[in-house]
Computed example of a mutant assay.
Amino acid sequence: MRLIMTNCLRLLKTKVSIVIIFLVALHSEAWSQSKRLEIDKIMNEVGIPGIQIAYTKGKNTDLYAQGVKKFGTADKIDSKTRFQAASLTKVVAAYTFFRLLDRGLIELDKPLMYYYTYDRLYNTTHGDKITARTVLTHSSGLLNWEGDVPSAQWRATPLTLQFEPGTDYMYSGEGFYFLQETMEHITQKSFQSLVEEEVLNPLGLTHTNIVWNDTLEPRAAYGHYELDKPRKLGKYAKTNAAYTLYTTAADYTKFIQQALLQGKGLKKGTHKLMLEKAGEAKKSPDVDPTDQYVPCALGLRMQLNEKGVAYWHTGSNPGFRCFFITYPKRKETLVAFMNTDQGFPAMKKLMQLFLDNNQTFWAYDWREGELD
């Protein structure tokens, strides 16, 4: 009799467990469907042809892929569609730098010209004061771009400084390219090889490339001027640490989880250093009261608000807008890629949709998503 009762209890527990699992799955699907409808609404309001989103809370990641790769076609966005990550590339470049720093190959505060004589700065006063720290905090004094990137004429253009390195703030892609060439010189490896060896392969980012190759064409999203005006397919044939990453929301989330939140591949002290406040940001020549909420970490931007510290970055390439924001203590991350110049108004709407709305989203409100 006791054996029968035991078996009956086991059977009952099994059935209850199955019911609970079913109800949880049903609730999860309903939640996802609700989010998909809200995403569609945002896409219609803003005018977004295609979007790819990854939302992580704890150990669970939800993926959303909606719309089309190119307006006027039936080629739908899916979870493996490649988007241009634009300036989110800079965060990958920063992590690559810290991998080399951990090996003693380069220092944070030693002038980059100590390692590599950059011809574009040869006759520039104070050019020899630019360090990796000033590059990663956008205090190098270099313009965002000086010339027609990535033409040969641009590469031959001498660089000018807008201020002495380390004394002010100015968002700069040129600084990251200088750091790229320095790392290439030190290691005698191409930046493509460095990123593949230090980031993509160790972290298992199998749907990410640092530069264009023709195998990406059937999977690549087209950029758009606006909803119904597609651009030509963007094919960056030369690596640039500031903007040439092709990836997916799922892969970039894996990068955030492993490299930024776990510090995988970095010494504990280096990981801590990467996430510390390292500089101030400025939205205009004069200090603005809102600048204090978005200081610079090394290669990242911080958001300081009612929910504590978050890390974020945005990206803006011709035809693409993207962003990520991650809350380490809340174990919550949101990544979104959009294939239109008009995409940034969706940034705040998406943060309000997925994240606790009882907070100030300085990541958007500071400059409506734009960093340069």
Rank of each mutant, 00 (worst) to 15 (best):
P285C: 04
V92E: 00
D62C: 10
W145M: 03
L100Y: 11
A54C: 10
L203R: 07
L88E: 04
G204Q: 10
A132P: 03
L159P: 00
T89Y: 09
F323Q: 00
F22I: 14
G265P: 13
L200W: 07
E197M: 09
E276V: 11
K41W: 05
K70Q: 14
K282C: 04
P328C: 04
K348R: 13
D214R: 12
R330F: 02
L121Y: 00
P202E: 12
N213K: 05
Y115P: 01
C8W: 03
Q303D: 07
L136M: 01
F354H: 02
L37S: 15
L350T: 09
F323Y: 13
R120Q: 06
K232H: 14
A237C: 03
N213L: 06
S172I: 01
Q342S: 13
Y243Q: 08
L142S: 02
P218R: 02
V24S: 11
G104P: 05
Q352N: 14
R82I: 13
H207D: 15
H138V: 06
R36N: 14
G127A: 03
R231M: 15
N357M: 00
L298A: 09
L227R: 00
G147M: 02
D286K: 07
V16I: 15
K35C: 06
V24W: 15
F22C: 14
S139I: 09
A54P: 04
H185A: 12
G308Y: 10
D356W: 04
S139L: 05
T81C: 04
F344S: 13
M338T: 10
L37I: 14
Y171G: 05
I256S: 11
T244N: 13
P289K: 06
F324R: 03
T160M: 00
S32A: 14
L227D: 04
